[in-house]
């Protein structure tokens, strides 16, 4: 599904990612961990096509296509979803309106008719329940005045609505209370299928208890310094990152 080869990314001329290699296959769940500032969000944003992040070299193939050539919206329409670490507030734009636009853009891209009002409402109801988002929240403007946890839930809700092929969730677990964490994990698991994949960026083992990863990678100073099975997360939790740093 996704192949990253020797990806170098810089911001304002400063190199952040210094050669990332990663392969994600359909049906897999990958977790990326690593200390603050190691470049996790940079990787996620570069994959989603944030222009601020300059790709200096490397190759990214997504479902057989050169991902780096696509506009951010086309990446999204082709099923790439980024759950933002810091979702932005968009005053005055209601979530309903926002989601409807997004879904129809995707449908248009696929050559489908716009979703009917009743189908849309049904879908909204269904997905809201899945992530435990209240109606009062979805009637508000996108992320405006949301609490940290509410913003994260809103990201998962949008993921559920858009049914991506590849979801990259950047610290979607931070700011969530334990119940919310379970709901979010439940949501992700529900959406897990053979033909889609998930990349979870997190600092905590606790999310990985609910969403069992197939692989765990450690990103450190712009490189993946260690990759292993799910047990790596436990090891990191116990020993901290110093252990990795020490191994360097």
């Amino acid at each position: 599904m996704l192949q990253i080869k020797d990806l170098h990314v810089s911001i304002n001329g400063k190199e952040i990612l210094k050669g990332i290699d990663l392969e994600v296959k359909a049906g897999e769940v990958h977790a990326i961990m690593g200390p603050n500032g190691s470049g996790k969000s940079t990787l996620a944003a570069a994959l989603a096509g944030r222009e601020m992040f300059e790709v200096n070299s490397g190759k990214v193939t997504y479902r057989g296509e050169n991902l780096l050539e696509l506009s951010p919206e086309d990446r999204a329409r082709k099923g790439l979803f980024l759950g933002f670490q810091y979702p932005v507030e968009i005053p005055g734009v209601s979530i309903v309106n926002f989601m409807k636009t997004a879904i129809n853009e995707q449908r248009k891209f696929k050559g489908l008719e716009p979703i009917s009002a009743s189908d849309f409402l049904r879908l909204m109801r269904e997905k809201k329940e899945l992530v435990g988002l209240t109606t009062s929240l979805t009637n508000r403007s996108v992320n405006e005045g949301f609490s940290g946890g509410e913003k994260k839930k809103n990201e998962i809700f949008q993921m559920a609505m858009l049914e991506p092929a590849l979801a990259i969730l950047d610290e979607t677990d931070s700011g969530l209370d334990i119940d919310a964490l379970k709901t979010v994990a439940h949501g992700v698991n529900q959406l897990r299928r053979k033909d889609n994949a998930t990349v979870i960026i997190t600092h905590y083992q606790r999310l990985l208890e609910y969403i069992i990863p197939d692989y765990v990678h450690v990103l450190y100073k712009g490189r993946i310094v260690k990759s292993s099975g799910k047990e790596l997360a436990l090891e990191l939790e116990a020993k901290g990152y110093d252990w990795i740093k020490g191994e360097e």
């Binding site: 096509g49 951010p72 919206e73 999204a76 932005v88 968009i90 636009t101 997004a102 853009e105």
Partner: peptide, 12 residues
């Protein structure tokens, strides 16, 4: 960032 957020959800 607002435009990008929309782009990311597939809105041109």
């Amino acid at each position: 960032d607002q435009i990008f957020y929309c782009n990311q959800r597939g809105i041109d």
